[in-house]
């Protein structure tokens, strides 16, 4: 699959998520399951004090912040914590639409080191939409306490994207995370996300439909992923996509700020 994202259409899409690219060099999305310490990572990167807490769904307002790394300004968007991007809940739609349509220069997926399997589910789904992903294996200190070891090199090879182990509460691994994000955002590092292989019936269906999807969306959207959503019968995504393709119309996704999830 490789990197399918070129700069085509990027500026117009950006305008839809107005003000995003105005005063910064790169836009970075922060995704992750609830309770992975995503807000703590956000705070550690931006130096902001977004409210953190140990209960699911805490980040109900999308937060934004920015940081400077090697004289470039990175704008960080904290997306709602979700288990998946599939089930059409408002939170998941916000996260998915942002990654899909706002096309961040890189997406950090925060995963919980003590519960990797469950968290990789989301990471794999994000990687189906965008290849420009950095996996942040957070809560590594908790994992050590629970005697869990994670081979991040192997994980990186297996997923085809950079991986860093962090303990955002103490700041461990944060410099490395910034470095990797910068590498991915300015394309110094080419990621090679490994696609999920589906069962034969699904792959057959993809093979039948994907060429026609590609003919319509070209390289602007990952056609394999979109084909899967069509097979899923995700009418809402198709609707949003329609508006997106018929450029000029604005996409009714949440504006920056707080009135989003109405």
């Amino acid at each position: 699959m490789g990197l399918t994202y070129q700069s085509t259409g990027q500026s117009s899409t950006r305008e839809i998520f107005h003000t995003l690219a105005d005063d910064c060099d790169y836009v970075i999305a922060l995704a992750g399951n609830p309770n992975t310490g995503k807000s703590t990572v956000f705070n550690a990167l931006t130096g902001l004090r977004q409210h953190t807490g140990n209960w699911p769904g805490k980040t109900v307002q999308r937060a934004e912040g920015s940081y400077i790394y090697k004289s470039h300004r990175y704008r960080l968007i904290d997306l709602p914590g979700t288990y998946s991007l599939l089930s059409n809940s408002a939170d998941e739609e916000v996260a998915r639409d942002f990654i899909c349509f706002a096309r961040p220069d890189a997406t950090i997926v925060v995963v919980d080191a003590t519960c990797l399997e469950r968290n990789l589910n989301l990471a794999l789904q994000v990687m189906e939409i965008t290849g420009r992903v950095v996996i942040c294996v957070n809560l590594i200190d908790e994992a050590r306490r629970k005697k869990i070891r994670i081979d991040t090199d192997k994980l990186s090879k297996r997923l085809g994207v950079p991986v860093v182990a962090t303990a955002a509460r103490s700041g461990e691994g944060m410099p490395r995370l910034k470095e990797l994000v910068s590498d991915v955002a300015n394309k110094r590092v080419q990621t090679k996300p490994q696609p999920v292989r589906y069962s034969q019936d699904v792959e057959d269906a993809i093979a039948r439909l994907e060429p026609r999807v590609k003919a319509i969306v070209g390289n602007s959207i990952n056609s394999r992923w979109l084909t899967l959503r069509l097979l899923d019968g995700d009418t809402r995504l198709v609707q949003t996509m329609e508006n997106y393709l018929n450029a000029g119309k604005t996409v009714p996704v949440m504006p920056v700020g707080q009135e989003g999830l109405a």
């Binding site: 399997e117 469950r118 968290n119 990789l120 070891r149 297996r158 999920v196 589906y198 069962s199 699904v202």
Partner: peptide, 19 residues
């Protein structure tokens, strides 16, 4: 099948890297 494949991939990868 779609959801199951994603989960089984996650399971497989986690199995390889977590000890």
């Amino acid at each position: 099948n779609i959801v199951a494949s994603i989960y089984s991939t996650a399971e497989q990868i986690a199995g390889e890297v977590v000890s």
